[in-house]
Each structure stands twice: as C-alpha cells, then as structure tokens.
Deep mutational scan, measured.
Amino acid sequence: GTVKVQGITIKVPNPDKAYKIAKKLAKKYNLTVTRKGNTIKVE
C-alpha cells in the first residue's frame, strides 16, 4: 500500500500497521487520516 503525507507518498507493506501509525501521528499533529484500501492519506 501507500501512505500519503502532505503530498509525499510512501509505499508500505502493511497498510493496517501503517494506518495505526498514521492515526497516532495525525492525533499528535492534528491531521486527518483517510484510508482507501492500501492507500493511506494524511492531510
């Protein structure tokens, strides 16, 4: 899958794990995490 952070896309082998990490970071930096299948977008 991929993770998008402010325009940066990161390929990740485990979208579930990445999503959990993204959620933690999002809370810390007051961002929104959206997930569509293997693509995770943080904005």
Rank of each mutant, 00 (worst) to 15 (best):
K28I: 14
L31H: 06
G7R: 07
K23S: 08
N30A: 04
E43P: 01
A22Y: 09
A22Q: 00
V5L: 12
K28A: 10
G37Y: 00
K11R: 13
V33E: 00
T32V: 13
V42H: 02
V33G: 00
A22W: 15
Q6G: 15
V42L: 12
E43A: 09
E43K: 10
D16I: 05
A22S: 03
T34M: 04
K27V: 06
K41V: 15
L25N: 00
I10P: 01
E43H: 10
T34D: 02
Y19W: 12
N38I: 05
K28F: 14
K20M: 13
Q6C: 15
T9W: 09
K17V: 11
K17E: 13
K23N: 05
Q6T: 10
T9E: 10
K17P: 02
A18N: 00
I21H: 03
T32H: 08
N30E: 05
N38Y: 00
R35D: 00
L25P: 00
A22C: 13
K20F: 08
I21E: 06
I8V: 11
N30D: 07
G37L: 01
Y29T: 03
K4R: 10
P15T: 12
T39W: 11
V42E: 00
L25M: 06
K28P: 00
V3K: 05
D16W: 09
N14S: 09
P13S: 13
K24M: 12
L31A: 04
E43T: 12
V33Q: 00
T34L: 01
A18E: 01
L31S: 02
T32Q: 10
D16M: 08
R35T: 06
K24I: 14
G37T: 00
T9A: 08
G1W: 13
V33M: 02
Y19E: 08
N14F: 12
G7H: 10
L31I: 12
P15M: 13
L31T: 04
K41A: 10
L25I: 09
Y19V: 05
L25F: 07
V3A: 07
P15F: 14
N30T: 01
T2A: 07
K27E: 12
Q6V: 13
K17N: 07
V42W: 03
K20Y: 10
K4C: 15
K36S: 11
K24H: 11
N38T: 05
I21M: 08
P15D: 03
T34R: 05
P13C: 15
K4H: 13
A22F: 14
G1K: 05
P15C: 15
T39I: 12
A18G: 02
I21Y: 09
G37M: 01
K36P: 01
Y29F: 10
K24P: 00
K11E: 11
K23A: 08
I21F: 12
T39F: 09
K23Y: 03
L31Q: 02
P13Q: 11
I21D: 04
R35V: 09
Q6D: 11
K36E: 14
V5Y: 14
T9C: 15
A26E: 09
V12W: 08
G7L: 09
K41T: 15
R35W: 09
V12R: 02
T34E: 05
L31D: 02
Y19K: 07
R35M: 06
R35P: 00
I8P: 01
L31N: 04
K24R: 11
R35L: 06
T32W: 05
T39K: 05
V12N: 02
T39Q: 09
N30Q: 08
V5G: 05
P15E: 01
I8E: 02
I21C: 15
A26R: 08
G37H: 02
D16R: 07
Q6P: 06
T32N: 09
V33R: 00
R35N: 02
K41E: 14
Y19Q: 04
V42C: 13
I10H: 04
A26I: 08
V42Y: 04
V3E: 04
Q6A: 15
I40E: 01
T2S: 07
G7E: 04
V5C: 15
I8G: 02
I8Q: 03
V3W: 02
N30C: 15
Y29Q: 02
R35E: 02
N38Q: 06
G7K: 05
Q6H: 15
E43Y: 11
K27A: 10
N14D: 13
P15A: 14
A26V: 08
G1S: 07
N14Q: 02
T32S: 11
K28Y: 15
T34H: 04
R35G: 01
G1A: 08
K36W: 07
A22P: 01
K36Q: 13
K20C: 15
K36F: 11
L25Y: 08
G37N: 04
